[in-house]
Amino acid sequence: MTAANSLSPETVMAQMKANGVTDIVWLPDSETNFLYLLMSSDPDLRLVGVTREGHAMSIAAGLFAGGRKPMILIQNTGMLESGDSIRGWLMGLDVPVVMLVGYRGYTRHGVITDTVAHYTERFLMAFDIPFYLVENDDDADRIAIAFKQAEQTRKPVVVLVGDEFHGFNR
């Protein structure tokens, strides 16, 4: 793996800033440590850490209701756990939010290394949530597309972060 085919945390941060994100509601996963260091050093970005991914949905809804622009950062395992909260607090309240979801178990070869990857896209299709796969810096414009689609539809849109390249780690 080279830097050229990985997803850098700086690229993700640049997308957050370019799209006006004010708050990150998140629970760490194994790929995001360096992104955390970047986010926490930005005085204009508020981090709201949660203890279970489903909590992020109602917090993001409250932030949106009050005029902020939150983004949710979780892993696919927690997204599956969060189904009813996504339905009720995000879809039900017309919250246009981008969820950056670590795609644990995904490999571009199609060889799944964790059962959660088997269910991730099926889950999103069942909930009728649009999603985009981002594996490296060249894919970063899909994050901007996700923000635009969320605003247009007033619904959540997911960006799946391909796990194989471990782009957030160094």
């Binding site: 489903g54 109602s58 409250g62 932030l63 009720g88 607090w89």
Partner: peptide
């Protein structure tokens, strides 16, 4: 006045937190 009914049980405290932080 924010009557939300019951969007998904257990989430009202989070909604309140988000709204308080935003305002």
């Amino acid at each position: 006045d924010i009557p939300l009914g019951d969007p998904a049980m257990g989430g009202h405290a989070g909604f309140g937190l988000g709204l308080a932080l935003a305002q």
